[in-house]
Design a protein around this nucleic acid. Sequence first.
DNA 1: ATGGTAGCCTTGCTA
Length: 256
Amino acid sequence: MRLATWNVNSVKARLPHLLAFLAEAQPDVLCLQETKCPAADFPALEIQALGYHFATIGQRSYNGVALIAKQPPDRLVLGLPGMAADEQARYIEAAFGEVRVASLYLPNGNPVGTDKFTYKLAWMEQMVGHARDLLRLEIPFVLAGDYNICPADEDVYDPVAWRDDALCRLEARSRFRALLYLGLTDAYRVFHREPHRYTFWDYQAGRWHRDEGLRIDHLLLSPHAADRVAACDIDKKPRAKERASDHTPIWCELAV
DNA sequence: ATGGTAGCCTTGCTA
């Protein structure tokens, strides 16, 4: 089973690239973030024409997440459990066969010291709680998405410049580590030790061409999923295209 | 050198 996650920065603007990725990479499940599109406006026909099912939660202009999969989603969860009052569309979860998959878009949190950072930390606390609940099920699951967190300095092109950014602050990193200490596994680091491998490059200042990016999109695996992970990698090809998203997909293969 | 880009449908916000 191949799973991928990709912050597309508008599903409408990225539709040609999205359809090409589905056709070429053939993921069993693709998690999208920043669809920026209400569910009623999601490009259903084009995705279904490729033989895929989907589920999405969206809003106008901002946020929005989706699950696109070869089998229909089961046990659908819309919104992060415990954040019922959250009006921002940032979490969707469903079962595909025996594997539970979440597509999540964690708040950016900048500027630090504002209610945006407080909201990010509250969201992460809720994520930790929900991960704990899922672990009790003792099933394979994958929490995939744009975490807006660089886990360590080696995941940032310039850690000094980014030291006090919400993506690198200790408060954010410590809560990411809390997910790992619960027993989740960062799939990318099972297979890749090298520093300075990125999933996001800012549109500005030629960051892509200088390979100055951030590793902020992650696949976190439950113990039962980690037991079966066979491969994980970043697919840089979509970021190199014209009119690309500022993020590129990361995928993993589970032997299920 | 305090810049620069992209997407939304705004004339600013978010990233």
